[in-house]
């Protein structure tokens, strides 16, 4: 019984993990290129509203023989959310890279603008400002082979998961490879550590930083679209619930490393799932739900203050680079 609850809680944790991890990876690309991105939440919000529109809009499968039996509505929703996130992130890239506006200032503005833009888009897409109509298509959930048959109810953790969860988990491989094993990744990281040195070796800093920020928007937008399309099945204002900031917290705790980011995202995802699924367990009944929800933030502050462990952001993150932007 209790094991079954834990299994179900882990299942919910996977959902939150996917949102936090995708968004956190977005932050990782941006900050590794030297651009601090506290606008992740806003980019996610844009992903939710556009993703939901995509899923609504492309409900009909393509003409015979071209659909390959794939759920095109949700897939298009996710892709459109991704594209919209990247497009929206262009504002952040323009402001910080081209105009050298303070990264924090720009990030705050991004978050502010996103809320209004989402409402505006919603009136265009759905004819109402704060939500879309329910009943939007989503992908068929999958059971993970072998893992889903773990006994004592723990297998429930691996049943009925969105295919996107699997995609998010597997994403760690291409991301790690791109960051640490390719020339592009080395150059991107060098822009975040020491742009002067990078430029003296012929690396073009500005375009790489644009790529970092746009990737960041794409991933945060994807996370938002996943939330609206695959989790909530509709768009609603305030849907992101500050998960963009939790992703930022996970990113800091991970020391800007994609593998550790996975662990941090899962732990924070589990913290989100506790009040939903384990709220009745004896230990958690003593602590109000709200305090459980605070844990990601508290842990991050404790680590930042250096009481436990040590984190080091990319050296040049947050600093404008004055070199010629060629």
């Amino acid at each position: 019984m209790v094991a079954g609850d834990i299994g179900a809680a882990i299942g919910i944790a996977f959902t939150y993990f996917t949102i936090i991890y995708l968004t956190g990876l977005g932050g990782l690309f941006s900050e590794r290129s030297g651009i601090v991105n506290i606008g992740l939440e806003g980019m996610m919000i844009i992903g939710t509203v556009t993703g939901s529109w995509g899923a609504h809009h492309f409900t009909l499968p393509p003409p015979d023989g071209l659909g390959w039996g794939l759920p095109w509505g949700p897939i298009m929703g996710l892709l459109i959310g991704m594209l919209a996130g990247a497009t929206f992130a262009t504002i952040h890239a323009l402001a910080t890279v081209t105009f050298r506006v303070d990264h924090i200032v720009s990030g705050v503005v991004i978050n502010l603008v996103a809320v209004g833009l989402a409402r505006f888009l919603s009136t265009i897409f759905f004819g109402q400002a704060t939500q879309s109509d329910p009943g939007q298509p989503h992908m068929n959930p999958v059971n993970i082979p072998l893992l889903s048959s773990i006994p004592w109810g723990l297998g429930r953790a691996f049943q009925q998961l969105s295919p996107m969860v699997v995609v998010a988990v597997l994403l760690v491989f291409p991301v790690s490879f791109a960051l640490y094993r390719t020339r592009w990744g080395l150059r991107l990281r060098s822009c975040g550590e020491n742009p002067e040195a990078a430029r003296s070796l012929g690396v073009r800093v500005a375009p790489l930083r644009y790529e970092g920020v746009l990737l960041s928007g794409a991933l945060a937008g994807l996370a938002g679209a996943y939330l609206a399309v695959e989790v909530a099945y509709s768009w609603g204002e305030g849907q992101t619930q500050g998960l963009g900031f939790i992703a930022l917290a996970a990113l800091i705790l991970s020391n800007w490393n994609p593998v550790r980011l996975m662990v941090a995202s899962f732990v924070f995802g589990f913290a989100q799932a506790i009040p939903l699924r384990l709220g009745d367990a004896p230990i958690f009944r003593l602590i109000p739900d709200q305090f459980v929800r605070m844990t990601p933030y508290v842990v991050t502050i404790v680590v930042l203050a250096g009481f436990v462990g040590k984190v080091r952001p990319p050296a040049a993150a947050g600093k404008a680079y004055e070199g010629t932007t060629t």
Binding site: G242, Y297, V298, L304, A305
Partner: peptide, 13 residues
């Protein structure tokens, strides 16, 4: 600890 990050976290709290 940088005030930007800590205050963001404090907002969540």
């Amino acid at each position: 600890a940088h005030e930007v990050v800590t205050t963001i976290m404090m907002n969540g709290i």
